[in-house]
């Protein structure tokens, strides 16, 4: 167990390191001098040089990378060029919207997809199975932002049940905030749930064909018990793999969906930063999102070991 965990942890760290080099290099080759950008076109050459020095832009690349990554580790992300506030503050404020959104949709995704997949597999070949799979086939094909537009039209414009967009903040307690995040989370989660339910179904069907399922039936276990006690845990392994990959899609999805609902999250921040060429913000947010994908995949890898004893021994 520890050996496997240690191995995954090291691989995760290495991936994180390489990813940070990639993000840093991309920002390095960007055209434009941040110092000049901050000071405007009318700034004198001396002022630009002075600011470059102050920002450490005149140092060699390697030093600047080390400085940047070192800052990341201790939570110092630098200062935004345009907002002139610490990037950390900016990011923290926006993450308070994006993070709950991602978690909420991940929850919704799992809670909907896995039971539906198990249900369809248990009733394989029935009309209920066929109907579920037809709906999921369409669900897979729906772009989340279009689904979001339809939801807004239906629930906010027509039925007026929820606000069409915007975010009241968390200061008024959790309910108004959650209410504002509900539609976005549904829009993000359901198309992904369509994929996951199909994966769950086929994983369950594969497992139900295994020899040990027959052994369990030969013991006298009724079909339903075999499903829960023997099949489910084995089927979880492929399901977890897909769930890990889907988190990356959810992260990308939040960025888009925030634009549909006018949510002040990291997605909106990154687009504003791009148009204002506030590179340090772009860099930090991209790195943060990439890191979260890597960490979730690490968690998935570690949870394999909980599900599958063969990995614990390795």
């Amino acid at each position: 167990m520890t050996r496997y965990a240690l191995n995954r942890l090291l691989v995760g760290l290495a991936t994180l390191l390489v990813a940070s080099v990639i993000v840093f290099s991309v920002m390095e080759i960007l055209p434009g001098d941040p110092a000049r950008l901050m000071l405007g076109i009318n700034a004198t050459e001396d002022a630009v040089v002075a600011l470059r020095q102050q920002m450490g832009l005149d140092q060699p690349v390697v030093l600047r990378y080390l400085h940047w990554i070192g800052g990341m580790v201790v939570g110092d992300l630098g200062r935004s060029y345009t907002y002139s506030v610490p990037v950390l503050e900016l990011v923290a404020e926006r993450a308070a919207v994006s993070l709950p959104l991602a978690i909420l949709s991940l929850l919704l995704l799992t809670v909907v997809a896995i039971p539906v997949g198990i249900f369809a597999a248990a009733r394989r070949g029935s009309a209920a199975d066929a109907a579920t799979m037809a709906v999921s086939q369409i669900g897979v094909a729906i772009p989340n932002f279009w689904f979001a537009l339809l939801l807004v039209y239906l629930f906010a414009v027509w039925l007026r049940l929820v606000p069409a967009g915007g975010f009241p903040g968390w200061s008024a307690g959790p309910w108004p905030g959650l209410k504002a995040l509900l539609l976005p989370a549904v829009a993000l989660a359901l198309p992904q749930a369509a994929i996951l339910s199909r994966v769950t179904r086929s994983a369950m069907i594969d497992v139900l064909g295994e020899d040990y399922i027959r052994t369990a039936r030969a013991k006298g276990l009724p079909r339903a018990q075999v499903l829960w006690r023997h099949a489910l845990r084995n089927a979880l392994i492929p399901v977890l793999t897909i769930l890990g990959l889907q988190f990356a899609y959810l992260i990308a999805g939040t960025i888009i969906i925030e634009n549909v609902f006018y949510l002040p999250g990291l997605g909106r921040l990154i687009f504003q930063a791009i148009t204002q060429r506030d590179l340090i913000v772009v860099e930090s947010v991209v790195m943060l999102l990439v890191a979260s994908v890597i960490i979730v995949n690490l968690i998935v890898d570690l949870s394999y070991a909980i599900v599958d004893p063969r990995l614990r021994a390795a």
Binding site: V26, L30, P31, A248, L289, I294, N297
Partner: peptide
């Protein structure tokens, strides 16, 4: 395999954002 891990960490949208930024 490690190359795969790294690319999988960059959802297409994030790559697009970085490429667009350049």
């Amino acid at each position: 395999m490690r190359f795969n891990d790294i690319v999988f960490a960059f959802p297409a949208l994030l790559s697009a954002i970085m490429i667009t930024a350049i």
